[in-house]
Design a protein around this nucleic acid. Structure first.
Length: 729
DNA sequence: CTAGGGTTAG
């Protein structure tokens, strides 16, 4: 009789129970003939002994053939109601093992309680079953009960117990079990020792995991893998790789595919593709390149490191990809700017009748957000609504983000409203969305509402609020919120500082902004100097602009936008020789201006235009519309803002007339290809230029259309001659 | 009869 360790008991009492999953509700497919079990009148009704024996025999025979959960449930129910289960522990045990084999946790649990004194293998099976299915607390409670009944665990009891401990947030229980193990002498049991290493590793207690590992006299591939993956998963990728190197040099343990997967994870984390590829070589040498799980990890690694083409070639070699392989490829595309490839692959997946999970759907939604296409966005929401993930809060949050980025804040809000338990990320997403659309007041209102609802803002929420204030020119509010961050114990990051600099500078408080930059506790990065430079352009402040530009050139010498900003500052001040100098500087450094490009979506298809683009099949009509627009603009007294011509640094581009800017062509195309009154949605890769911005305002009025333009930073909603940004961008 | 790994993150 061994008493339960008090520490283990104490630790267990404090644990929350895992909420039980509902028992399977699907009705039995095939109804067993119930009456054949129950004692029937013609079968010696007056002799319960005899009929019980018959029943037992029949039940045992049926149990041997009961491969389906529904059959098992029925047998269970019948035996239970007849009270016979209590008379025959061996039958109960048999029934229990069948239930365990079928993964029927609830029934197995119920049956275990029916068995008077379960044997050690039975206890082991029960613990293993719960541990495998993630019911860790239950697994431990069963273990506790076992100890309490004075049953002595064997070598097979502890591995699943340790696995359950490793699944808990802290290794408190694990340590108690460890103490147990020490007292009982499982020092030479490799399974138990490996379990300890994995338990500490999973809980993030790497030094403890290492201590156990280092004391092992005998190590197999599982011991090595446990410690390697422990390091890789807890932010010590370099240690993981060192240990792998040691494994190869100082042991004759041959890595198997699971070991390699763990190693690749470490390379993935440090994004060391060169080393990662060399492991790919090792995989081939070991003859493991056909291992499906390794193909998944390799694909994920290449995809995550931006080598989407290499990833795709691996993907294409798999005849029927598993769900997570689809996920790795689709998310790889989405994260690396291959949005249309991601959406296309998602469609292919559906066409091939592979059911996506919430990870797939989230990746697909992310791709839609990047694509900016409202049509594709609506399609994916529709798809999501018919999927089992329609109520998933992660999915809904990505939908909010997606609609905001596709230009429909109304749709984003609709999704937002329908979420019952809004967490901080949901609120942050909608606040960010309103900010993106220049609706700062509403963003602030939502922020206050969120606080009233008792949701605590985090650093991301503050980025949202600050950028919302910024886009709407709400200087005082923005400053107030920035100062309130510390009340919430949030230390402002660089991004928050950048927002404030932009906020102050754009509103004309250049000196204040500069002072603020100097007071920053970290080195200002490009975004901060860029905000200053931009404001200097707006307010014609040459000196500070020059200084900011110098800082930027040192940090990011190859981005043409900064040179153009500086050049524009000089041009506005009439400093033509300095304009020329900037041009020379650009040439010396080999910086070329990004070519403006606008996209417009018509009937779900994207059309792209560049400056002066004549490549479109309907080019002739487009240019007729362009001249008509220009006529209308002139007639209503529109004067082009000549400053915008100065954007173009090369002589060739200077010759381009302003009305050839790409967004104007996209608008013209939109007008000739849609019904009157249809909203036009345009995306461009640069910031809106001053001239196009005022022209578009007027055009929206002249043609009676709402025009939504997503530029590189934000949205502009043009309507009735006005823009939602209030000319503040 | 036991053990180690993999997609993702608004």
């Amino acid at each position: 009789m061994v008493p339960a360790v008090p520490a283990l008991r104490r630790a267990l009492i404090s644990l929350p129970r895992t909420p039980p999953s509902p028992p399977p509700s699907s009705p039995p497919r095939q109804i067993l003939r119930l009456h054949s079990f129950s004692p029937t009148p013609h079968e010696e009704p007056c002799d319960p002994q005899n009929s019980s024996a018959t029943l037992l025999r029949r039940a045992a025979a049926l149990l041997n053939s009961a491969a389906q959960p529904s059959h098992l449930s029925q047998i269970h129910a019948i035996l239970l109601s007849s009270g016979i289960l209590r008379c025959s522990p061996s039958l109960a045990a048999k029934l229990f093992l069948s239930a365990a084999d079928l993964g029927l946790i609830h029934q197995a649990r119920h049956l275990l309680d029916e068995i008077p004194g379960p044997s050690v293998p039975l206890w082991n099976a029960a613990i293993r079953l719960h541990s495998r299915h993630g019911a860790f607390v239950d697994a431990l409670l069963i273990y506790d009960k076992m100890l309490h009944q004075g049953v002595v665990p064997d070598g097979l009891t502890l591995p699943p117990v340790l696995k359950a401990c490793g699944g808990l947030p802290t290794p408190t229980v694990g340590r108690a079990v460890h103490a147990h193990i020490l007292r009982r002498g499982f020092e030479t049991d490799l399974f138990v020792q490996n379990g300890l290493v994995a338990m500490y590793a999973k809980s993030g207690w790497i030094p403890c995991a290492r201590a156990v590992f280092d004391r092992l006299s005998d190590r197999n591939v599982v011991s090595w893998t446990s410690i390697i993956s422990g390091c890789a998963q807890n932010g010590f990728p370099l240690e993981a790789l060192q240990i792998f190197a040691r494994m190869q040099s100082s042991s004759d343990v041959r890595p198997d595919f699971i070991a390699i997967v763990s190693v690749l994870k470490a390379y993935m984390d440090i994004e060391d593709l060169d080393q990662g590829s060399s492991v790919h070589g090792l995989v081939i040498k070991l003859g493991l390149d056909d291992e499906p799980d390794l193909v998944i990890t390799l694909t994920a690694m290449y995809a995550k490191c931006g080598q989407v083409h290499t990833a795709r070639s691996l993907f294409d070699q798999v005849p029927s990809p598993a769900l997570i392989l689809w996920n790795a490829m689709i998310s790889g595309y989405a994260k690396n700017g291959f949005a249309s490839e991601a959406v296309e692959l998602f469609r292919e997946m559906i066409a091939r009748h592979t059911k996506p999970d919430s990870v797939t759907i989230r990746s697909a939604i992310l791709a839609c957000a990047q694509l900016g296409s409202l049509e594709v966005g609506k399609w994916i929401e529709d798809y999501t609504g018919h999927s089992p993930f329609k109520d998933d809060i992660f999915v809904k949050t990505s939908l909010i983000d997606m609609y905001a980025k596709c230009g429909s804040i109304a749709r984003a809000h609709r999704v937002f409203e329908c979420i019952s338990n809004k967490d901080v990320v949901v609120w942050s997403a909608i606040i960010m969305g309103y900010g993106l659309h220049g609706r700062g007041r509403e963003a602030i209102h939502l922020f206050e509402e969120m606080k009233c609802a008792g949701v605590r803002p985090n650093d991301v929420t503050f980025v949202g609020v600050l950028s919302a204030c910024n886009h709407a020119g709400l200087v005082d509010e923005g400053w107030k919120y920035f100062c309130s961050m510390r009340d919430y114990g949030i230390e402002p990051r660089h991004q928050h500082y950048a927002c404030v600099v932009d906020l102050l500078a754009r509103a004309g408080h250049l000196e204040k902004a500069y002072e603020f930059v100097r007071s920053m506790p970290m080195e200002p990065e490009v975004t901060v100097w860029g905000a200053l430079l931009n404001a200097c352009k707006i307010y014609g402040h040459v000196g500070l602009g020059q200084y900011a530009a110098e800082q930027i050139f040192a940090l990011e010498p190859l981005n043409a936008g900064h040179y153009i900003q500086l050049s524009n500052i000089y041009a506005s001040a009439g400093m033509w020789s300095d304009v020329a100098k900037v041009r020379v500087l650009m040439k010396e450094k080999g910086v070329t201006k990004a070519i403006g490009c606008s996209l417009i979506e018509i009937n779900g298809k994207l059309h792209s235009f560049r400056v002066g683009d004549k490549l479109h099949p309907r080019s002739k009509e487009i240019f007729e519309m362009l001249s008509e627009l220009e006529r209308k603009l002139k007639k209503s007294g529109f004067v082009p803002h000549m400053g915008s011509v100065l954007h173009d640094l090369s002589m060739e581009e200077k010759e381009e007339s302003l009305c050839n800017h790409s967004e104007r062509i996209a608008i013209a195309f939109g007008l000739i290809s849609t019904a009157p009154g249809t909203t036009l949605r345009i995306m461009k890769n640069l910031r809106a230029c001053v001239n196009c911005h005022s022209a578009t305002k007027l055009i929206s009025k002249l043609v009676g259309r709402e025009i939504v333009v997503r530029d590189i930073n934000r949205f502009h909603h043009f309507k009735d001659g006005l823009c939602s940004c209030g000319d503040y961008w």
